[in-house]
Each structure stands twice: as C-alpha cells, then as structure tokens.
Design a protein around this nucleic acid. Structure first.
Lengths: 144, 144
DNA sequence: ATCCTACGATGGACCCAGTCCAAGTCAATA
DNA sequence: TATTGACTTGGACTGGGTCCATCGTAGGAT
C-alpha cells in the first residue's frame, strides 16, 4: 500500500512551520515515519540511537512532544505502560489495545461518539475531543 | 438524591465473596463510597489516614486494586496524571476529563461504541470492552 | 474464651517513565 | 563567517506505583 503522506512532506511541513532542522529531529521523524507499529519513547530512542548514537533521551522526549503539539503525531496512553506514539495523525481513527502485551492497532469504527454526548451531559465543559479505546487480547496473547 | 447502592451493600457483597474484613479495607471502602468525586490513590490515602492514621500507602494500593478486580470500582487513567478511582461501577457510563486540572465527571452518551466496531476491524483480537473518554476544559479551567 | 494460622498490613527500598536544568553546540540568518 | 538564540546533552530528580521481608490479626476451630 502506498503511503499518502510521505516523510518528505512531513519534513517540509515542519520546516514551513519554522522548525530548526537538526540531525536529531530528522532522525526521530524518520523513525516514526518508517514504522507501521506504535512505538514507545524508549523504542524510538533505541531506533534513533542506531542511526545517531549520541542522541539523548531528553531530545527524543522533546521532539515527540513537539510533534504531538504540532498535531503530526498522536499520543496513545496504554494505562500503566509507557505512552505510544502514532504517526498516523492525518486520518481520524481510534485504537485497539491488547491488555496482554500493550500492542496497539488503528481501527476505524462507524459512528461519531462526539455527537452522542448531548449538551445536558457536558456540565459546562468545553468539549474538544473524544478518544475511543477498545480493549482486548491480540491473537498471540489470546491463545493462553 | 438517594444512593441506590449503599455502603452496607458493598461491605455485604465483599464479605460474601470471602473478603477478610479489616479496619483498613473498611476505611478505604467507606472513603470511596462517601465521595462523589473521583479520587486519586493519594487522595484516598489522605482521607483514609484521617480516620485511621497508621494505614499505609501499600495497603491503599492493594485494596484499590482488589476492588477494581472485583468489579466494585473502575480505574480511570487520566494520561500522565495519577489514576482516579470511580466507585460508580454498577451503572455503565463514560468519562469527561478536564485537560486543565484532571477532574473527572461521569457522563452517559447515547449509542453503543462496541457495536460500531465491525469484525473486519478487529484483527483477530478478542475485544472485551471499550472506553470512551471525552476531553475538554471544565468551567473553572475554561475561563483562562 | 482462647488458640492457630493463613491472609492481610506495614514501611522502606526500589523501579519506571518522564521532566528539569545548567552548560555546551550549532542552524540559520545577516 | 560571525553571531546568536534555539536546540541538545546527560545526569539528577520527581511522581506514581510496586515489591518484599516481617509483623499483626480476623475469624474458624476447639
């Protein structure tokens, strides 16, 4: 399957937003873009270190945080475990998390949960978004 | 408003399940039942300490964990912050979390997200549940 | 009423994910 | 190519939570 949003596009967008392009940031962005799974910060660090041995943990966290707040990457909390980072931020989707090993898959449910929350159930909050997280056991963890 | 599920019911159920009833467990259960907000483990510890000064942090965590696995209390992960504990486990509901202060409200959206996930989107997982978490700013945090 | 014992409580060490900071480095402009 | 402020570094630190060896006690047995 062809990727609709390529790496070069991402770097392009970041440069356009005034990002100073450093070797570290490029490597982190490339690692995220190159993997189709949802990596933890430590896994990103490990893969980044393979390409750029002197990169630091703090920089990986900084860069991931920036990518998240720029809306280029989505943070997936997996309850007790380390957060995972999802580079597929441009197509709306939800997540299916394995309770056994923490693996994450993107899923595309029908329906719009935001419209399922009437004003009377918003209690004066300014509701800005909704996350739907399905829980279960992946095929590997399922065969106990 | 009258509580439909009272404290004595809870203690009753626990005893019925073979729980050894200790002063510590009683205090933790009472604290959860007495509050209508969603407390963190530390808040539970603080309130429990007020009634039983020598109670330990480990016991609070143990007891909360037991209540969760007995299905009497629901754990609400609030992304980076401490987990919160929701004693309202007997009526299905979802959560609205303030991105500013972490406060949690119970909400009751219409619709059933589980049925919105077709088999083709389950990837061989045994899907056991779904959480819907609305994000936004509460009235207090909203007025910047 | 008392004894027994397995289940529960204790608290302090420990762990992990993540953040902070002061000092050093370097990308992008002029 | 000189300048400078944004970026990186690594090591200390924090918060939330877990572990564990030891001590205490609820509740059945007698």
């Amino acid at each position: 399957m062809m990727r609709l949003v390529s790496m070069s596009d991402l770097l392009e967008r970041l440069r356009g937003r005034g990002w100073r392009m450093t070797a570290q940031r490029r490597v982190v962005a490339e690692v995220l873009d190159g993997e189709h799974v949802h990596l933890t910060a430590d896994e990103v660090l490990a893969r980044a270190t393979a390409r750029l041995p002197e990169i630091s943990r703090a920089t990986v966290y900084n860069t991931l945080g920036e990518l998240v707040s720029l809306g280029e990457v989505i943070e997936v909390a997996t309850d007790g475990r380390a957060k995972r980072y999802d580079p597929n931020a441009h197509r709306p989707h939800q997540h299916l998390v394995c309770s056994g090993c923490g693996a994450v898959r993107d899923v595309h449910p029908s329906g719009d949960p935001l419209s399922d929350l009437p004003a009377s159930e918003r209690f004066g909050f300014t509701v800005s978004g909704v996350e739907v997280t399905y829980r279960g056991l992946c095929p590997d963890c399922g065969r106990a």
